[in-house]
Computed example of a mutant assay.
Amino acid sequence: MSIQVCENYQPSKEIRNSYPLPAINLRKLACILNQWQQNYRTRKALIELSDEQLKDIGLNREQAHKEATKPFWIGYYLKL
């Protein structure tokens, strides 16, 4: 499931009427879990970048360390 699908996910009226509420909530949960997994992977990769690579993306070592040490669940909010 892609991030773009999750960010834009808004169940249609037909889906809301045809599926029980827990099915819709499971879709939202899947999006959240997907984002948490991506946060974990990208933060782990960020800490492994060289100073030159960090400079290319506009970060210094301190900023990268601060971002990389955040818990994976920080930084993703889904409107319920």
Score class of each variant (00 low, 15 high):
A23Q: 13
Q53V: 03
E62K: 02
L33G: 10
S12D: 09
Y76A: 04
P71H: 14
R27L: 09
I74S: 14
K66Q: 07
Q35C: 04
L80D: 15
T69A: 07
L59C: 01
K28T: 07
F72A: 05
Y76E: 05
N25H: 13
L26D: 08
Q4N: 12
L21V: 12
K66F: 03
Y9V: 08
E67P: 00
Q35K: 06
L59V: 00
D56T: 09
P71W: 09
F72H: 08
Y77T: 13
Q10M: 09
S2R: 10
A45H: 08
A64R: 00
R41F: 15
Y9I: 08
L49E: 02
S12P: 03
K66E: 06
L26T: 13
W36L: 08
V5T: 15
I24D: 00
A45M: 11
C6S: 12
K55N: 10
G58D: 05
Q63P: 00
P22L: 11
E14A: 09
E62G: 02
Y40L: 12
N17T: 03
Y19P: 00
T69S: 12
L46F: 03
T69W: 07
E52R: 11
L33P: 01
I47K: 10
Q10C: 10
K79R: 15
P20S: 06
K13H: 09
I3L: 15
R41Q: 14
S18P: 00
L80Q: 15
R43T: 04
Y40E: 07
N60Y: 01
S2V: 08
I32M: 09
I3Y: 08
Q35G: 02
E14H: 06
K13L: 13
S2A: 11
Y9A: 04
A64E: 00
Y76D: 03
R16E: 08
Y76F: 15
D51K: 06
L54M: 02
W73N: 15
L80E: 15
V5M: 14
R27F: 06
Y19E: 12
Q35H: 05
T69R: 12
Q37E: 12
S12E: 06
L54E: 00
Q37N: 08
E48R: 08
L54Y: 00
E62N: 04
P11F: 01
S50V: 02
Q37A: 10
C6E: 05
I74Q: 13
L26I: 11
L33W: 05
R61M: 07
L21S: 10
K66N: 04
W73F: 14
Y40P: 01
S12G: 10
T69N: 09
W36V: 02
E48C: 07
A45E: 15
W73L: 13
K55P: 01
N39T: 03
R43G: 05
C31Y: 01
I15Q: 09
Y77K: 09
H65S: 07
Y77P: 01
L54W: 01
K70R: 14
R61A: 13
Q63E: 03
N8T: 12
W73D: 11
R41A: 15
Q38H: 12
I15R: 11
N8I: 04
L80W: 14
P11W: 01
C31E: 02
S18M: 05
K66V: 01
S2N: 15
Y40I: 06
